[in-house]
């Protein structure tokens, strides 16, 4: 990829989401990208941990993903879901044992041969700026092997980005903000 052009303006700093977002940001069916009755519905769930391996009970997660055919959604209506339109966006506050659940679909590859993944953003009290990461689907091992990001990571770090498929078809993805098996968090071009 060519060199990204310089920014003209300096971005505004982020700050922590703090402890009191719970009455403000979550919205009804925020974690239901599709209805549970949708034929392709999949549960994506996991736990958010701190550096001591303790659960974080006041974190909020957002996902953004393509639909099961790899199409990027462009429809509005995430905040007021009609139950039919796939908007690709979900938001969920973790529960008081740090656990989250989304109901979604397995994203398809956005291009032929690409490893499909869900984009994840993590916010928490105590976390001074949001963190980005990717949740890869585990199945297409060839695509995973060819993925530029995964290829640039050592084996033990790579596995923190690949969800586990559970027996009932659910995707399991835990997030570790710190410590052993710390999740790989990402930066992108043009952040400053």
């Amino acid at each position: 990829m060519a060199q990204a052009p310089e920014l003209k303006l300096v971005p505004t700093p982020g700050q922590t989401i703090g402890p009191f977002y719970g009455y403000a940001l979550p919205f009804e069916k925020g974690n239901e990208l599709v209805n549970q009755a949708h034929p392709a519905a999949v549960r994506l769930h996991g736990v958010v941990y701190d550096g001591n391996g303790e659960v974080i009970p006041d974190s909020m997660l957002e996902i953004w993903q393509a639909d099961e055919h790899g199409n990027v959604a462009s429809a509005d209506g995430s905040l007021v879901r009609d139950g039919y339109t796939f908007t690709g966006f979900g938001r969920v506050p973790v529960d008081n044992v740090g656990h989250y659940t989304f109901t979604t679909v397995n994203p398809g590859p956005t291009e032929e041969g690409k490893a499909p993944f869900i984009m994840l953003t993590v916010f928490a009290r105590g976390l001074l700026n949001r963190l980005f990461t990717r949740i890869y689907l585990p199945e297409d091992t060839e695509a995973l092997a060819n993925d530029p990001l995964l290829a640039s990571l050592p084996e033990d770090r790579r596995k923190t980005l690949i969800a586990a498929r559970e027996e009932d078809g659910s995707l399991r993805f835990d997030i570790r903000l710190q410590g052993e098996d710390e999740t790989v968090f990402l930066s992108y071009p043009r952040e400053s």
């Binding site: 993903q65 990027v72 956005t110 990571l153 770090r157 992108y188």
Partner: peptide, 8 residues
């Protein structure tokens, strides 16, 4: 970890 953005 720096990465180039994919489509999504």
């Amino acid at each position: 970890h720096h990465t180039d953005p994919e489509t999504i």
